[in-house]
Design a protein around this nucleic acid. Structure first.
Lengths: 142, 142
DNA sequence: GAAGATTGAAAAGTCAATCTTA
DNA sequence: TAAGATTGACTTTTCAATCTTC
């Protein structure tokens, strides 16, 4: 039968996505939403929507709507950019920070569950093989 | 820095998807549409929409609309199921068969392009590692 | 009542056009 | 004119409700 490599890659990706979305869905998050919260937490200060779009590798109008949803849930708020009146900044709220922590925990659960059957050796090998495809630049794999 | 495995898997999956969608988009197909055409060609006879949904691992209403689009383009037609008046069969047309062949060709082009940098050894290794994740049953990797 | 299909609404994404500000 | 954000139209998918037929 021999499933082709590309199909396996698609399936594997979908499986990873499903595992995370399922775990995150339980706490009212998705991978996209968690990505925004993570950026805001990492930066430690409000970020222009255009920079979010850049880092998240998606289109600007998508970020607009993504932030709409997050704002509706009270996880972020829009604030004016004092430096540029065209720009709008996304700022994380306390509720957002809490949700982010829950999201990190849920992610770890999903990750653990996914890779149970893999030895450290397997993980390293898979990492190396995928890195070439995902065109990540492969910086410091040691 | 060390990108985590799950992120690489997601990225790799997206990259594969993008490569195929791009190649298929040029001939008016998508992976989903090609999947339906492939099933119809493989089976060699009209198939109930519910069976399509089962094999394609998506929800019934999705198949309804997918077949709508395919029917609009003249690639499949709906026919009544003589055995069960609730059921609707999807049948491939001559245009659908032609398009399917073009789709196969486009897919091969995408596949070749994607895995240029991989030796046979790499491919085998990747296949084996992914198979465990994609839960494909791993039948005969020998 | 349960199965097959459809419909309508919603999520998540893209693109093109528009509006405000630099 | 160009940059930042939004809006509207469209695509693809899922879910819930509905309708017909078993």
């Amino acid at each position: 039968m021999e499933a082709p490599l590309w199909k396996l890659l698609l399936k594997a990706g979908q499986r990873v996505e499903a595992a995370f979305e399922e775990e995150l869905g339980g706490i009212g998050l998705s991978l996209s939403k968690l990505g925004v919260l993570k950026m805001l937490v990492d930066e430690g200060e409000p970020i222009p929507l255009s920079r979010l779009a850049g880092k998240l590798a998606c289109v600007k109008s998508n970020v607009t709507q993504l932030v709409d949803r997050l704002e509706t849930e009270g996880l972020v708020v829009r604030v004016d950019d004092p430096a540029d009146r065209r720009s709008v900044l996304a700022a994380i709220t306390d509720a957002g920070r809490e949700r982010f922590l829950a999201g990190v925990e849920a992610s770890q659960k999903a990750e653990t569950r996914l890779f149970l059957g893999y030895s450290d050796e397997d993980r390293r090998a898979l990492l190396e093989l995928l890195c070439r495809l995902a065109d990540c630049g492969c910086p410091d794999l040691k």
